[in-house]
């Protein structure tokens, strides 16, 4: 594992590391640890969700029926596709194919923007329908109170997810810039790899959010 002379003077090797391999492992481990914190961050929300859904199953089902399953489903497809383009971007980076890499990064960002656009439309609908929690909240009388908890959870969970998407698109922009400048090569692609991990994670969060929020009580 001793670093060879060439690697030791690689321009991308930071001073605190001995070799590119060590640097790459450290970066990947760092991102995994970060994703663990993210799991717990959303975990607090999922725990809250679980408690209230357990207590108020009918109100949650009624409120869930107000969500637009078509838009939500489309968004799920959009995100899964973006994960594919992200994986292809990492693959292109590993192969050192810069033009393909740039292309896939653009595709990933574009899909991310589509997702946010659709999300915005959904938020707008909820606003028009007075389903935003607060003094102006309106819902069928029997479930008016607990539906408000559902929508509070809906907004904070999808809202934080959207914030993560925006950050992800920002990271992709940075990756695009680095790739454009030729800083990503076949022997130094950890930024792309690590950003890919983050992107997939945000995607997976949605995979959980979609059924939990949109599909309650729809199996019958």
């Amino acid at each position: 594992m001793l670093p060879d002379a060439v690697e030791h003077h690689h321009p991308a090797l930071a001073h605190q590391f001995d070799s590119l391999a060590q640097q790459r492992e450290a970066a990947a481990l760092g991102m995994w640890v970060f994703l663990v914190t993210e799991v717990l961050f959303f975990g607090g929300l999922f725990a809250t969700y679980a408690v209230y859904r357990w207590w108020y199953p009918d109100a949650f089902a009624a409120a869930s029926h107000e969500l637009d399953i078509l838009l939500g489903g489309t968004n799920t497809a959009v995100l899964i596709t973006s994960s594919l383009t992200m994986a292809l971007a990492v693959h292109s980076a590993q192969l050192g194919r810069r033009r393909l890499l740039l292309l896939f990064l653009i595709a990933t960002m574009a899909l991310g923007c589509v997702f946010l656009g659709i999300k915005g439309v959904e938020y707008y609908h909820k606003f028009v329908e007075h389903h935003v929690p607060g003094p102006g909240f309106e819902f069928e009388a029997a479930y008016a109170r607990q539906a408000q908890i559902f929508f509070s959870l809906y907004f904070i969970m999808t809202g934080l997810h959207a914030v993560h998407m925006i950050i992800g698109i920002g990271i992709m922009l940075a990756m695009f810039w680095m790739s454009w400048r030729g800083r990503i090569t076949a022997d130094y692609y950890n930024p792309i790899e690590v950003s890919g991990l983050y992107w997939h994670f945000v995607d997976i969060v949605w995979i959980f959010l979609f059924p939990l929020l949109y599909l309650i009580g729809r199996h019958a």
Partner: peptide
Amino acid sequence: LTPAARITAGFQPIMPTFQ
């Protein structure tokens, strides 16, 4: 306060809330 939350079998959720 929340009549609809746990309805006795055989009855409709028609009671208004007294919250």
